[in-house]
Amino acid sequence: MSVVVRTIARILIPVILVFGGYVILHGHLTPGGGFQGGAVAASAVALLLVAVGAPAVKKLKAPFSVLEDLGGVAFVVLGFLGIGFTFFANSLAGMGGLFGAPVPSGPNPGVLNTAGTVPLMNWAVGLKVLGGLGAVLVLFGLFGGDDDR
């Protein structure tokens, strides 16, 4: 595309990626979560693809596929962490360890170190959605020859 689009994309893509990471990281405190943050980060991939064309980002296809598989496997493993009670039981919440700080009842300022396995699942699902949608976008861009009109 034109140089205007490429310049704007170079400025905007880091901002979009940082916002997607924020939505994923604060998923247990603020609105949003893994799927929403992953979709926001994948829109940065879409902007990159529209700006510079698909052949320039051909190398990203394999890392996105691996990221998608790793996210799915991590999500299932985190679900199995609570298998002593039930599947998907939150075994880390309120235990004092990683993400285990207790939360007082009622309205309170959020602490990042809470909610047990929920933030880890947010990261797993966020990376999975980013990888899956990014791989789909790159495949759509690469389909039918390498022309870049």
């Binding site: 949003g32 929403q36 979709a39 879409a46 976008l137 759509f140 389909f143 039918g144 009109r149």
Partner: peptide
């Protein structure tokens, strides 16, 4: 706001990008 973020990310950005790529082809 959860649904709003998902709609803005998927509906407004990704669907538009995929349609633009399809029109380009």
């Amino acid at each position: 706001p959860d649904v709003a973020i998902a709609e803005a990310g998927v509906g407004a950005a990704l669907t538009t990008a995929i349609f633009v790529l399809a029109i380009r082809k």
